[in-house]
Amino acid sequence: MLHTVNKSPFEHKALESCLKFARQGSAVLLIEDGVYAAARDTAVSPQVQKALHSVTIYALKPDVEARGMQNRVMDGVRLVDYGGFVDLVAEHNAVQSWL
């Protein structure tokens, strides 16, 4: 299953909820303000790093770049463009948007 998260992890619980319910082997795509969770050396990066052991985490590159985050993305988080977003949706049986 693919999960999308579009909220900053510093102000909202969307990512936390997502990670609580995302089962082993799921994919999590960070979009919009959700991409702030992809940054290294933040208060939430340990949580994200831990999650990387059980789920694959992607971040939407246009949103990363718009926010000037392109040089701060932590190792292990994969960047995709909108075409990659489409592929992820096609590859998974359903999508849960953590709005």
Binding site: N6, I31, E32, D33, D63, G83, V86, D87
Partner: peptide, 19 residues
């Protein structure tokens, strides 16, 4: 909100891929 922008870019990319 960015939602409509993201949806638009997603739809455009899906169409470009032949979906």
């Amino acid at each position: 909100h960015e939602a409509s922008d993201t949806a638009y870019q997603f739809v455009k990319a899906a169409l470009a891929k032949g979906h």
